[in-house]
Design a protein around this nucleic acid. Structure first.
Lengths: 194, 194
DNA sequence: AGAATGACAAAAGTTGAAATCTGTCATCTG
DNA sequence: CAGATGACAGATTTCAACTTTTGTCATTCT
């Protein structure tokens, strides 16, 4: 059948379209339903609330950055190179989204306000990867840290300026890349065995 | 005379009172004038705009944190202790203001939005002190960094979570102090000579 | 003179009534 | 019976009239 019944994925795609067109402040679930030519009640059969729909959109969107990061995780070079690459990839991915996906990025920022489950999972995923890189570095004798999980958190915090959406306004500054490099040096020297 | 004419300082004090009572969203210069029992036109004789008045209030307020930091700068112990103390003092000062001076802290956050001169100077002052500590550490042979100014910026950025008002919401979390300690370890190991 | 005033225009903010949206549900459709 | 519908109540948003605030300035005060 061309269109027997509405799927979760169709709704998500329509929601992305609507969010991109109207932005998070204006987009309504009526708009999403209209885009799909169904009643808004149908959308509510698949998502319990507008907030849940928004979160599902963001979950899918955030998974895109994960793909690039997963590629870095798959590498098997020295841990310091991997850590640097991972941070650079995260920064690049976030900056790209902030620049050429403004409306969805704004939706992401809005989510930040209401302590969302999705964001928490996203951060946990990132912290997990960091911990893995650091543990690996320790195993190879490259890094010397006392608690890899705590260090992962510290590295995450230290690099906040280059991945937290609250600092997105800074990402257009001329000096930002130099500053990123300087931070990487500090972090890498901070974990390196001596 | 008990009150010959209005001084800049009287206005600033009245403005602080008004800001504390009504908060930055509600406080008006008419309120400030009323508190002083003068017309609002008089306030405009001393400050060219409401924004300028707000900035002057913030300048005075930010200087308070500088006092504590200056005390740390005056010390002459090892540079690593000084750096740690400086970061801890900055964090403590900001957290204290966020907690028991909510309204003025909110005013400070509002200022952040409009790229204020005062904030820029505040940050430059902090960066200058950091650079001084780091240069001193290098001179003593304790630290090894290639460019103290760039490293100062990196240390500032790395510790953003513990002094930038945009992260104030996190400062109430239970784990925050452990996380601060872990970050300090990372930063100190990052600058230390090996 | 320097300092303060109050009247004024333009900008910003408030208010409340009307319109729209969210979320539920009894009913309908295949 | 799973999925879709549209009517509905309560919450939220919008819009326009109205009020307050900002910033200026000619005039007054000392």
């Amino acid at each position: 059948m061309t269109d027997g019944s509405l799927t979760r994925d169709q709704i998500l795609s329509a929601a992305v379209e609507v969010l991109r067109r109207y932005g998070p402040a204006k987009a309504t679930v009526v708009d999403v339903a209209r885009a799909l030519k169904v009643s808004h009640g149908s959308v509510y059969r698949h998502f319990p609330s507008k907030a849940a729909l928004r979160e599902a959109v963001m979950e899918r969107w955030l998974r895109e950055s994960h793909t690039l990061l997963d590629a870095v995780m798959a590498g098997d070079g020295p841990a310091d190179v991997r850590l640097r690459d991972w941070l650079a990839t995260l920064f690049a991915a976030k900056r790209k989204k902030a620049l050429d996906d403004e409306e969805l990025f704004a939706t992401y920022m809005a989510l930040l306000g209401d302590a969302s489950e999705v964001i928490e999972q996203h951060i946990d995923h990132l912290l997990g990867q960091l911990r893995e890189i650091i543990s690996d570095g320790v195993a190879r004798g490259e890094f010397a840290v006392q608690d890899p999980a705590a260090t992962a958190r510290a590295v995450f915090d230290a690099s906040l300026r280059f991945h937290s959406p609250v600092h997105a306004a800074d990402w257009g500054r001329a000096e930002i890349d130099e500053e990123f490099d300087a931070l990487c040096v500090l972090i890498l020297d901070g974990v390196r065995a001596r």
